[in-house]
């Protein structure tokens, strides 16, 4: 049973979307903490560049492409849910987004496997510690987003709770934006 409180909109936007924005605000400071720590260490230790040179820009770039594309399908799902009221189409597009997340994780797994087998482990150098930690926290958000989207898509396919397609999309775009910053920070800066 949804309380009456949940249906009020004194602040001008639906409660659920407002809450998602607050969740993102709290995520910004979590990623901000990691990235600020990484940045100040990285700028203070120019010699880390030697380690960073070993990252594979092409894999990072491919993953950026995958996430950007999955964001596109997420926003198209939102469009289908909101403007076409087409839950089935929205669910299909969300399925594509989940697929994108899956490809992202597979590529990441392959990349990490290669790096670890070449001796670049989380313990080998502070750069790699930050590399695996930042990307790992991000990857856990990707997994969380995929699980959430699976639930939302299941409902949306039955035409239920269509507004959630937008909410999970906002979260997914945020995960995308984080990666947009992680990509140059971890891969390009040499």
């Amino acid at each position: 049973m949804r309380p009456i409180a949940n249906t009020r909109t004194a602040a001008g936007i639906p409660t659920a979307r407002l809450a998602v924005w607050w969740v993102l605000a709290s995520e910004i400071v979590i990623f901000g903490g990691v990235l600020a720590s990484y940045l100040m260490q990285r700028m203070g230790n120019p010699d880390w560049a030697a380690e960073a040179a070993a990252t594979n820009v092409w894999i990072g770039a491919f993953n950026t492409f995958v996430l950007l594309t999955s964001s596109l399908s997420a926003v198209l799902a939102h469009h289908a849910a909101e403007h076409e009221q087409d839950g089935k189409k929205a669910a299909r597009l969300l399925g594509l987004t989940i697929l994108g997340g899956g490809i992202f994780l597979c590529v990441k797994g392959f990349e990490w496997y290669t790096e670890i087998s070449h001796g670049m482990t989380i313990q080998s150098h502070p750069f790699w510690s930050f590399y695996y930690t930042a990307a790992g926290i991000h990857a856990s958000h990707v997994i969380a987003g995929m699980i959430l989207m699976a639930f939302v898509a299941k409902d949306a396919a039955k035409g239920l709770e269509l507004h959630r397609v937008e909410l999970v999309g906002i979260y997914w775009h945020f995960v995308d934006v984080v990666w947009i910053f992680l990509f140059p920070l971890l891969y390009i800066a040499k």
């Binding site: 950007l68 964001s71 596109l72 997420a74 926003v75 999309g169 906002i170 775009h173 945020f174 995308d176 934006v177 947009i180 910053f181």
Partner: peptide, 10 residues
């Protein structure tokens, strides 16, 4: 890129 995503997708 972040601006474009935040403005248009979010």
């Amino acid at each position: 890129k972040a601006y474009l995503v935040v403005k248009n997708f979010m």
